[in-house]
């Protein structure tokens, strides 16, 4: 599988870039040797595409398609999928049911394209019966998903891919790396100059202004650890003058009220950072309180 990527020298580091999971991805390698940078980028690109192909809900040749079209019949899943299902179950418990990988089905009625297509209460009510992690039966390796329900790993996939890629690349190099998949990123350690990677936490409110250039609201020196961001101002619905965010509460099917426009969290792994950011969004007004309790560095934009 030939992956399309570019490689560019930035003086004291190399940047490999490619597209995966519908996002621009990059791998910054703190080394001088072009061949090593090329190899690392190839590995990263391959891993990102592997995870995308395996868990994308836009394909009909993967495990997710099998599960979502099992019509209530048990499906035997592989170890990696099983680990993700275990993890999703934990997140469901930790979030008191607010993080639910069966809630993606709500997208059928909620279209967050900035337009004003607003669903009726009846439409939402009809879908609620098809949502709820406890409705499925999960006994490793057997998963039984009731007919018409759907699983979606979209809430974890990209962050998980960042972590997995980092683990793989670390087996091939001791150099400091920055892995950035569409703004969810991870740094593996101090650079040769003793510093971290300088990363920008983007301010979504600036999107589309200043000639379409993205402006960076916060700069942060990331030595080791991960940053993930939840939230996107491009995805919302205006209805009767009220702005509804794309963060949906799976328990009532409605957008969470009072949620920040975006939340960025720093944690030891990108998966942790991503879950904490998403859970913070689901807390609505209490996002900051929730994050303060977690003793992590974070930014909330309102």
């Amino acid at each position: 599988m030939a992956a399309a990527f570019t490689l560019e020298s930035h003086g004291d580091y190399w940047a490999g870039r490619f597209t995966a999971m519908a996002s621009p991805c990059e791998v910054l390698c703190d080394l001088d040797d072009e061949a090593s940078a090329r190899q690392l980028t190839e590995l990263a690109c391959a891993e990102a595409q592997r995870i995308e192909q395996k868990f994308s809900r836009y394909r009909d040749d993967n495990i997710l398609y099998q599960i979502n079209h099992s019509a209530g019949e048990p499906v035997a899943v592989d170890d990696e999928t099983a680990a993700l299902l275990d993890f999703a179950a934990q997140c469901y418990l930790l979030s008191d049911g607010k993080f639910d990988i069966t809630s993606g089905i709500l997208r059928r009625v909620w279209r967050f394209d900035g337009k004003n297509s607003f669903p009726t209460k009846e439409q939402i009510q009809a879908l609620l019966g098809l949502i709820g992690w406890p409705k499925l039966t999960w006994q490793r390796p057997w998963l039984t998903l009731p007919a018409d329900m759907e699983l979606d790993f979209g809430g974890i996939g990209k962050e998980y891919a960042v972590d997995k890629t980092a683990l793989i690349l670390q087996r091939h190099t001791a150099a400091s790396l920055l892995i950035n998949f569409g703004g969810d990123l991870l740094a593996t350690g101090p650079r040769r100059n003793g510093q971290g990677w300088l990363v920008g936490v983007e301010d979504p409110r600036r999107l589309g202004t200043q000639g379409g250039k993205r402006n960076t609201a916060k700069e942060f020196e990331l030595v080791q650890g991960a940053i993930a961001t939840s939230g996107d101002t491009q995805r919302y619905i205006m209805h009767k003058g009220v702005r509804y965010s794309h963060i949906l509460n799976p328990r009532n099917g409605w957008p969470v009220r009072g949620a920040p426009r975006s939340v960025s969290v720093v944690a030891g792994t990108c998966t942790d950072a991503g879950i904490l950011a998403t859970l913070a969004m689901l807390q609505g007004k209490k996002a900051e309180t929730f994050l303060a309790k977690q003793s992590v560095k974070f930014w909330c934009l309102r």
Binding site: N193, Q195, L198, G200, T216, E219, E221
Partner: peptide
């Protein structure tokens, strides 16, 4: 640019 602030950030 933000990514050139490695020195200034010290």
């Amino acid at each position: 640019q933000p990514w050139e602030r490695d020195i200034l950030a010290q």
